[in-house]
Design a binder for these strands. Structure first.
Lengths: 115, 115
DNA sequence: CAATGGATGTAGATTGTCTACCTATTCCTG
DNA sequence: CAGGAATAGGTAGACAATCTACATCCATTG
């Protein structure tokens, strides 16, 4: 009989803190709805970045509260109602900021790993 | 009057999940104690990677439980008692694994950011 | 003898992610 | 026309890793 700790395997597939950046970047290619963002990230990354709905929707709501993105109900090409998001000016600033921090961090980690 | 949420700013400076990898890599350069690991990471990364003691020591204990590292009390050059860690064979396997996952993830994120 | 630096540690808050569900609609196929 | 797949949005609760803030002990130095 396994302990709950062993049974419950919570694997963070996505590096914590990168989701907002990835969503903002995706919205730079034009307004997009949640489901579309997931697909775009998945296909464009060669199936590596798989965002769960339980991560994505809370993130979108969070970012909307922070006013990094703005939303509007529309209808997709598949004739389904969907909430389309676009990045605000503040969102674009946030993206630039996130990205610069991300690159600093990656470079720092590389300098350790390659030493 | 600010809300608690505004007052308490918890910034994750280190990308979640990378600490174990960084510690294991540091130990590849030879046995080292906690304080020394912190310093090594800080100086070798050009002051970018600042590991807090509240992150480091729990991580070391966790990794010891997982048998990725093994410890021994010794005395430093400064004549202070310290707990020296070394990577086990399993720890070296873990490092290789972490590193490969990390590189896959970084490449995937780069493919999004550079699109 | 006080201050500084070396060294280890814990408690509790916070956050973001994950798993596991649920709902609704449209379109296609047998 | 029933049923399933795909599209689309969502929530609740578990969990892990990090952070802040604090505490302790010892050795060296002024």
């Amino acid at each position: 009989m396994k302990s709950e700790r062993e049974v419950y395997r919570n694997r963070i597939e996505l590096l914590q803190g990168t989701l907002d950046m990835l969503v903002l970047k995706t919205l730079q290619w034009g307004p997009q709805h949640g489901y579309g963002i997931t697909q775009a990230l998945r296909t464009r990354s060669g199936e590596v970045l798989q965002v769960e709905t339980g991560s994505l929707y809370p993130a979108l709501h969070r970012m909307e509260r922070h006013k990094w993105i703005a939303a509007e109900w529309r209808v997709t090409e598949q004739n389904q109602r969907a909430r389309f998001y676009r990045a605000t000016a503040e969102g674009r600033r946030q993206l630039a900021n996130d990205r610069s921090k991300w690159e600093t961090m990656v470079a720092a980690i590389a300098s350790i790993l390659e030493a």
